[in-house]
């Protein structure tokens, strides 16, 4: 459905995206994950046809010219980009008309989509007066007016409360079930977990691309979860077999090379007079994977 071959984009001297080759298939929920400035937005904008690549070849929905596939493409930018001084309904009608729909088509679809996004009670409200989460739902609704085959969302849930985030993702799942291919960028690891495939981006490059399960399996280390209150725990674990010790909420993830190191860590902790029951091995989370990938890049 989408094929990128050695695509690069630079803004003057600054490299936005550096030599990316990717293939995204129909029916996927494809996640772009990475820190700020990794090139996620640039990549999405290129796929949306807003930016053209400086180098490389791109085919979106089989077309090299982005103009001819605009009809089949939906796009929700990172920043709210609808008209604040227009009501929910007016915004939706505007977008519908811009995609060439006629009045009946728009009215029917608008009702359906406002119902789907639970915005129906707010349709007369000015977009400026919506909450952050509702604004994102409106952006989603507007992007869906013309039933796109490919739906691009750039960090749609940044700054949205957890409940709205869950609702938002439920909507994406339903769309995906109806046959829409979705490409979504996100800084949240729990959202990356929800994608069918994830590309981890760093400094303009795709460092790894696989399903969440595949990414976890290719993780070369083992993760020990340590439930400890001791604030200076990192000092005790400064031993060669421990690769890294990262704080995850009130727990620590101790990264070790192999099984032999597990016993070593246990001994070290006991020697320091800490309870070793709080230590257990867990499967790596995506966050562990990305931390490892990011440090390999450096």
């Amino acid at each position: 459905m989408i094929k990128l071959e050695h695509v690069s984009k630079n803004y003057g001297r600054v490299l936005g995206v550096n030599d990316i080759s990717l293939e995204i298939n129909q029916g996927e929920i494809f996640g772009l994950v990475g820190p700020d400035g990794a090139g996620k937005t640039t990549l999405i904008r290129m796929i949306a046809g807003i930016l053209s690549p400086t180098m490389g070849a791109m085919r979106v929905l089989g077309a090299a010219n982005p103009e001819i596939i605009k009809q089949y493409l939906g796009y929700v930018p990172q920043k709210f980009s609808l008209y604040g001084e227009l009501t929910v309904q007016e915004n939706i009608f505007l977008l519908g008309s811009l995609y060439g729909q006629d009045k009946e088509e728009i009215e029917e679809r608008a009702n359906q989509i406002l119902d789907f996004t639970k915005l129906l009670p707010f349709k007369e409200r000015l977009a400026d007066h919506l909450s952050g989460g509702m604004k994102q739902k409106l952006a989603l609704a507007a992007g869906l007016m013309h039933r796109p085959k490919l739906f691009l969302l750039d960090e749609p849930t940044t700054g949205v409360d957890p409940v709205s985030r869950r609702e938002f993702w439920q909507m994406l799942y339903r769309l995906n079930k109806e046959g829409t291919t979705i490409i979504v960028s996100t800084p949240y690891m729990d959202e990356a977990e929800l994608c069918s495939r994830v590309a981890f981006m760093h400094n303009g490059k795709v460092v790894d691309c696989n399903s969440p399960e595949g990414l976890r399996q290719s993780y070369p280390y083992r993760v020990l979860e340590l439930n400890a209150k001791e604030p200076s725990i990192k000092r005790y674990l400064a031993i060669p077999s421990v690769m890294e010790c990262n704080k995850f909420g009130d727990k620590y993830h101790v990264i070790v090379k192999d099984g032999a190191a597990l016993a070593e860590v246990k001994l070290t902790l006991e020697a320091a007079g800490l309870i070793s029951e709080a230590l257990k091995e867990i499967p790596p989370t995506l966050e562990d994977v990305f931390v490892a990938l990011a440090s390999e890049v450096f």
């Binding site: 949306a48 046809g49 807003i50 103009e67 605009k70 009809q71 493409l73 796009y75 930018p77 920043k79 709210f80 980009s81 609808l82 008209y83 604040g84 977008l95 811009l98 995609y99 060439g100 507007a142």
Partner: peptide, 13 residues
């Protein structure tokens, strides 16, 4: 400035 142009550009307009 407000990004609305971006939303317009992705339409077939």
């Amino acid at each position: 400035e407000r990004g609305t142009l971006e939303q317009l550009i992705v339409t077939p307009m």
